[in-house]
Simulated scan of single mutants.
Amino acid sequence: MTFNDQLLTPKAKTYHDIRKSGLSPRLLPRKPHLTVAIDALRVLEIAQEEVEEHRNNVQRRALRVFKDWCNPLEELNDVKFVRRYRISKESFRSMLDDVKFDLEHTTKRSRALLPLHQLSIALRFYACGSFQIVVGDTCGVSQATCCQVVHRVTAAICEKKDNFIHFPKIPMERHDVMRGFYDISQLPGIIGAIDGSHVLVVNPGGVTAQCFMNRKGYYSLNCQLVCNHLLLFTNMVCRWYGSVHDSRIFEESRLCRQFRRGEFKGILLGDPLDHNMAITVATVCLHNLAKRRNDPLPDEEDDGPGEEIEQPQEMNRVEADDSASSTFTADIYISY
């Protein structure tokens, strides 16, 4: 039997059989070459199946789910709305008119949030003081979206702070404030009450972390606030570490320099001197808006059986000094 006859035997019909027989593939005749090509295609098919199987086993990214947005102004009554957002519906609409142009998106892609929904998410975060992921689940958005919305709304409100926080500059405004304080305490010439308040913050870390540690043993910002006889904030400074003394904050403030230059005539009454700043300014603006509109305080009673109200978390609660709500003492700052 010749060499070619040996290659064409039934035992040598495939490429693998020829390799096992010890023969060189280069010596294959034309017909075994066709068999080799078919075997190569089969190998490629098997490899492709293995790749597809591996891709199916890899965990893929979850598909986006778009939820129907609800309007809290329509879904909640007045009492429940105040309990959840700490302001009335009228104040909510007024604030929405002020910031809606800053909150509108340039595109409607991916069902972009409307200004109404953005403001409701941010106010919910301010009011309950919970974690962003909890607020996001309550409002139907992710934690990342909740974070972006809070920063966006906070920046928009802070840009309008001069509409809500301003010190009495004209004589008529100062006269009204002095008259109001005199009716309360029989002390003449008072145009404001000043005090400091510590706002809790998370440990920022880094080399300056200890600067945020106040005398009470926790990390905070020391904010200087001035209010009038109607409990409206007229001036605030919230950029100092919790370890900074109240006296230094006042000495370094613009308000102190204005008093020394004689721009304001009157007395400031206060206690004896011994991503958070922007949120503090925003909440002060909301406080003044609610006070001007005489919004009712939320009722502490439960809404009804089976309904739970989120409790404020420690990290977002504003803790005032021990004497912040007490009567002011007779220590004063007098303009030079």
Rank of each mutant, 00 (worst) to 15 (best):
R248I: 12
D246H: 10
L269Y: 03
I267D: 05
G266P: 08
W240E: 14
D271W: 01
R254I: 06
E252W: 10
A278R: 15
S247T: 15
R248K: 14
T208Y: 06
I267A: 06
A290E: 12
L232S: 11
R239W: 11
A278I: 13
S197D: 04
K265W: 03
Y218N: 14
L221F: 10
G206K: 03
L297K: 11
E252I: 00
Y219F: 15
R248M: 13
I279P: 00
D303I: 10
Y241Q: 12
G206N: 05
L200N: 13
C238I: 10
Q224D: 05
L268R: 08
N228A: 00
Y241C: 04
A193G: 04
S220H: 15
Y219Q: 09
V202L: 04
L230V: 06
G205P: 03
G242L: 07
I249C: 09
Q258F: 06
A193M: 12
Y219C: 06
G266N: 04
G189F: 13
E252C: 13
E263V: 15
L221N: 10
A290F: 10
E263A: 13
D295S: 11
V244I: 07
D274F: 11
S197P: 01
R248C: 07
D303M: 08
G270I: 04
G217W: 01
W240P: 09
H275V: 06
H287C: 11
R257L: 09
T280M: 13
P188F: 14
G192F: 13
R254T: 08
E301F: 00
N222P: 11
T283N: 08
E251L: 12
I267T: 12
H287M: 09
L297F: 05
P296W: 09
G196N: 05
S243M: 09
C285D: 10
